[in-house]
Design a protein around this nucleic acid. Sequence first.
DNA 1: ACCTGAACACCGTTCAAGT
DNA 2: ACCTGAACACCGTTCAAGT
Lengths: 188, 188
Amino acid sequence: MSPAVAKTSDREILTAARRLIVRNGVDGLALRDVAVAVGIKTPSLYKRFADRAALLRALKDLSLAELELVLRQAAGQSPPSTAFNNMAHAYRDFAKCQPEMYRLIHRPELKTDGLEAERKAAEPALKVMAALAGNDFALSSARCITSFLHGFVTMEIDGNFRLGGSIDEAFTFSLEAILNGIKLKKGI
Amino acid sequence: MSPAVAKTSDREILTAARRLIVRNGVDGLALRDVAVAVGIKTPSLYKRFADRAALLRALKDLSLAELELVLRQAAGQSPPSTAFNNMAHAYRDFAKCQPEMYRLIHRPELKTDGLEAERKAAEPALKVMAALAGNDFALSSARCITSFLHGFVTMEIDGNFRLGGSIDEAFTFSLEAILNGIKLKKGI
DNA sequence: ACCTGAACACCGTTCAAGT
DNA sequence: ACCTGAACACCGTTCAAGT
């Protein structure tokens, strides 16, 4: 007769999972802990998410949208070179503040096949790079800076810069070098 | 009286594990499969490696040494700009030919604390970058190109370049831009 | 010295049964 | 419609016992 009353919600589950991931890392996330955190038993999670991967995918999509928003705000209406630097620093700040979520975003096994979201996320960066490098080189330029940023922050949060020196300095140096190098290509 | 005869060796175990990782990925590697491949039972693996992480660490160290060798050979005695390009292409080729091993190298949970190997691995790159950017900017330049390469090949093997266009073109474009940008900084 | 069977704790996942 | 207990398969790991 009376259907069971929902003890929790998708939102609450995602929030709890996120907190646990921040604490223990993605690999340290056990569905049992998520269930306990929201006051249900493990099998009940499967009424809301197909499996563990689906839960992580939903969490990844949230974080990706968050990062995208941060980048849009960083770009604002600034002129291209300023937007370039602001976006780069915002990207790095996001990764440093939320390393586990950043790692989650780039988990290869959580690839979504929706190409639409990717286009939308890349749009502001492509616009800035088109202004800096010209339309012909916009895509390659975007891939250059995107690759650098991803590699840099990954190495940084993984603790892979261990030869001393200032990491901040390496970052600003690299941004200047890449920006100048890209601008150079515009002419020819 | 007669101690048990060894059925396998560290080398054979590592080779088998490597083959399985190439086939199924690191996360798909089960110790049971490794044991079966070398003709022993799972618990026997613990006589040779402290645990699963230790086995992966040994495999990572092997792959890292292999990559380092490839990079040294690519640099050879070439002039700096040539060495820069050769090393970059060799780096990318390694990752594309052995994506699972490349991923293993960068697993954050397998960090070794031995800073010695890292210094040695970075040495040839630092030498080239010192010639291109001057001693003051050698470290930052090395971090710039290293970050770019890591980010680029990671995105490539993860299938994260999905907006069309030529990936080869993006790579060569980026190398030129970064090389030129770094050279520019030498003067001032 | 190396190997093994048995056991343990801990996973993700399924499903029939409850309300 | 949502929740649960019980069970399953599959992990990594330990250890006493064999040779």
